[in-house]
Design a protein around this nucleic acid. Structure first.
Length: 587
RNA sequence: CGGGGUGUGGCGCAGCCUGGUUAGCGUGCUACCUUGGGGUGGUAGAGGCCGCGGGUUCAAAUCCCGCCACUCCGACCA
């Protein structure tokens, strides 16, 4: 392929709103072009990279026994209604009607479609297991697309679905997919971490994310310095923090704390470590069918609420901040909320001075962080303006829910090895789920087992953000000059740059080397443009081919230069050795 | 969804506050010349309904109203 014939619109200037290196270089290098918010066209170079990424994904999946199919992007709304996601998926699901008024959606993911297909043709345990996937466009009407290919509305995703006769087999496949994904991302030259993820209300037992480590990542992940534990912050667990030595000893009592509302103020007021304060976070939990309720989550003052964990703890779809009015309507006193009625019910506060009956709030759901189990010497809100309770012993509480709802903090100890945990940022490029029968049941996708019994499929689902991978790769592989593509995903493995195309000898030598490289199986591009030397070198660096062969001035001595993009080191080699030198660089 | 910003030749921007020449600059594009190891220099060109609609005015890129698009921060993101 000749550069002069290709559509490679490299740009000198960065698009005005691009912030991330991947966004800037993919646009400047002529890989992609924005059509609308979150929607990109792939230009020839971008398409080539995309195809290479796809090919790697396909090769590894096929090796693992998966089968590629292709489902329609437009899917009947009916299926989505059946699975209950038509309403639930929300505004991200792009809905529309055809000319007859039939409802459709643009598929944001294809569980329903795939289940429907399998249901149609798979009826016996003898056909199981089966793992089907596609690499196809998806559409999610994101509220806020950004960062180029990182978070688009239209994007390419590999989505796979496996079907099994029992859970053990599904788990086996899950592990096979984890191993396969590791191979895929390793081949692309990515530095990634496999982390525990929130499987939330959707997933079954297990869910893991594949995170490419990059500061620009949108996810915070918690990793252990001592072992290979890693988790998305939404799912990260820790060893219970140690108690600070000076516990505030006190008799259970009601204490006037005028205007002291925040944990910080309270800590100062009593000169007590926040560890011994009870933080009450009230949220409005939203459920299916538009139902909602106020829930109070209690944590140690030294902890923060992890909202995903909290939502899971009450089975809510979502948590919203509750307004002050809503709290008061529920009988709560913002700034002074506490588990007071529980203490009263436990019979401890009897006889305490001027207990106000109306401060109790028996109708609000409450969840305690597991770190408050048996907590003693605590200070908490009295649910009464300007009052707190001191000397609270939470171990007397009966029938209350304890859950892990606290956010793991940097510096906490690893639950597995006790090592120090720290935060890092990651780009989610893969996610694997153990789904169980969550879709097969409502969609009535069943098979006959060995005993002739009808059972729903046990399912797993596995995704890879294919177009996002392009961005992730560049986030990890770039320098101040541009992209530095790892050879397996580079648009071309090498470029032959003719220093001056008007120099007949350079031109002929360049073409010869180009032919020889092609002959040798190298994916090579010939930069035969009538541009100046510097211009072509800048393009080489910006686009980021792994390797360049410069046919220029030294040709007179029978020498060409071979430049490695990653190091920008150049090496003079005799013309005859050019092919070998390139192959050595690519190896 | 909440709050801000911006829309001017392909790209990046100035002009707007304070209404009034032919809407300007850089880059890119075309032709010719020049140069040929790090975005060479020159000459001559083409390319704009100043986002859309309405209003104010003798006169609107500029002021006012509405809409749309893009974008940034946040919320959200199985």
């Amino acid at each position: 392929m000749k550069f002069s014939n290709m559509l490679i619109p490299t740009l000198k200037e960065a698009p005005k709103d691009a912030v991330l290196p991947s966004h800037i270089y993919l646009v400047r290098g002529g890989f992609i072009y924005q059509v609308a918010s979150g929607i990109y066209d792939f230009l020839p170079l971008g398409k080539r990279v995309l195809d290479k990424v796809r090919a790697i994904v396909k090769e590894e999946l096929d090796t693992a026994g998966c089968q590629e199919v292709q489902l329609g992007l437009v899917t009947p709304a009916e299926l989505w209604k059946k699975s209950g996601r038509y309403e639930k998926y929300g505004a991200e699901l792009l809905r529309f009607e055809d000319r007859k008024g039939n409802e459709f959606v643009l598929g944001p993911t294809h569980e329903e479609m795939m289940v429907e297909m399998v249901k149609q043709f798979v009826g016996s345990y003898k056909q199981l297991p089966m793992n089907l996937y596609q690499i196809n466009l998806k559409f999610r009407d994101e509220a806020r697309p950004r960062f180029g290919l990182m978070r688009g509305r239209e994007f390419i995703m590999k989505d796979g679905y496996s079907f099994h006769a029992d859970q053990e087999d599904m788990v086996r496949e899950f592990e096979l997919m984890e191993a396969t994904y590791r191979k895929i991302f390793t081949r692309m030259g990515l530095d990634f971490r496999v982390v525990e993820a929130d499987s939330g209300a959707i997933g079954g037992e297990g869910s893991k994310e594949f995170m490419v480590l990059a500061d620009s990542g949108e996810d915070t992940i918690v990793v252990c310095e001592g072992c290979d534990y890693g988790a998305n912050i939404e799912a990260a667990v820790r060893k219970a923090p140690e108690a600070p030595a000076e516990a505030p000893e006190a008799e259970l009592n009601r204490f006037r704390t005028p205007g002291i509302k925040s944990i910080e103020e309270l800590s100062k007021f009593f000169s007590v470590d926040p560890y011994y304060l009870v933080k009450a976070v009230a949220k409005k939990a939203l459920y299916d069918g538009g139902k909602s309720e106020i829930v109070i989550f209690y944590l140690r003052g030294s902890d923060e609420l992890q909202e995903v964990k909290a939502a899971n703890a009450v089975g809510a779809n979502e948590l919203e901040d509750a307004s002050e009015e809503e709290l008061r309507a529920a009988g709560l006193t913002p700034g002074f909320m506490g588990p007071i009625e529980l203490i009263r019910n436990a019979g401890v506060i009897e006889g305490a001075p001027t207990f106000r009956e109306e401060a109790a709030h028996p109708n609000v759901r409450q969840v305690f962080d597991e770190n408050l189990k048996n907590a003693d010497h605590m200070i908490c809100g009295a649910n009464e303006e300007d009052y707190h309770l001191v000397g609270c012993d939470l171990s007397v509480l009966k029938d209350v829910t304890f859950k892990d709802i606290a956010q793991t903090q940097e510096g906490d100890a690893c639950a597995r090895c006790g090592g120090r945990l720290h935060y890092t940022k990651g780009i989610e490029v893969g996610h694997i789920f153990q789904l169980g029968t969550r879709y097969s049941e409502p969609l009535e996708a069943t098979f006959l087992d060995a005993n002739g019994k009808r059972k729903p499929f046990e399912m797993g689902t596995y995704g890879i953000g294919v177009s996002r991978l392009l961005a992730a790769i560049i986030e990890q592989h770039h320098d101040e000059k541009g992209c530095v593509w790892p050879a397996p995903v580079a648009p071309f493995e090498a470029v032959v740059v003719i220093g001056n195309v008007k120099d007949q000898q350079q031109k002929e030598a360049g073409e010869k080397i180009y032919d020889a490289l092609k002959e040798a199986g190298v994916d090579v591009l010939l930069d035969d443009r009538s541009e100046r030397f510097g211009f072509k070198m800048k393009d080489f660096e910006l686009i980021g081919f792994p390797c360049a062969v410069v046919v220029g001035k030294k040709l007179a001595d029978g020498v060409v230069e071979v430049i490695e993009r990653s190091t920008l080191e150049r090496e003079d080699v005799a013309i005859e050795r050019a092919v070998d030198a390139v192959k050595a660089k690519l190896a």
